[in-house]
Write a protein that binds this DNA or RNA. Structure first.
Lengths: 103, 103
DNA sequence: ATCTAATATCGATATGTCCCGATATGTCAA
DNA sequence: TTGACATATCGGGACATATCGATATTAGAT
């Protein structure tokens, strides 16, 4: 588990769409229940499902997920053609603790 | 007490200097003990004291404090020639709760 | 009224972010 | 190997942020 960088994290959180992605990922089966190729609770949600729900191009969605991943807020798993993203709850907890203790 | 805007808050927190200001303001008397014109524990810390400790121009420091204030993270009090800034603990708590509950 | 100190605002430039279309890469299937 | 699909990356234009120097504003002191 890598160490958190508050600046990268806050930058990643400074965007409505990226916040939305994180919130959707709290209950993937509720928001992306149509996914059949894999259990989204375990592996996460693939890029195209986010793309479907967002009025943004595939490249933008992919880039946003990469930003969240570089900040450590989500993790990616490639299975076949798909890349599944899910929340990194450990990092989210660290951010919450940072807010309480350091700030 | 106004309602929090997560985007503005995270943008305000996406800067090393502004984070430093917030951290310094946790213990103003430790970091700005030289202030004699007013008790920094009550009213806060004036712009010039931040300016002294930061390798940034007065205008930049003033702008940063304004950004923190617009996000609701600090409050400003004008007394005579000075504007004193202090943390808005209520808002900081709201942000921490947002991190825990919403995100 | 004037001078000066503290702060805020303005204008400018450099750098960063948003978001796109186009293209490249990876992976399965025929 | 060729084709089709999922994802990633590249290059760019519009807009936002970082930071400065210069100037304006506010308020006390003379």
């Amino acid at each position: 588990m890598e160490h958190m960088n508050p600046i990268d994290i806050f930058k990643a959180l400074s965007n409505e769409t990226r916040l939305q992605i994180l919130i959707w990922l709290k209950e993937p089966e509720v928001h992306f229940g149509t996914q059949t190729s894999a259990d989204c609770k375990d592996v996460g949600v693939c890029v195209s499902l986010f793309h479907q729900r967002l009025q943004l191009t595939q490249s933008t969605v992919s880039e946003y997920l990469a930003i969240l991943q570089r900040a450590g807020l989500v993790t990616a798993t490639r299975i076949g053609k798909w890349t599944y993203y899910k929340r990194n709850e450990d990092m989210l907890r660290k951010v919450a603790h940072y807010l309480e203790d350091e700030l």
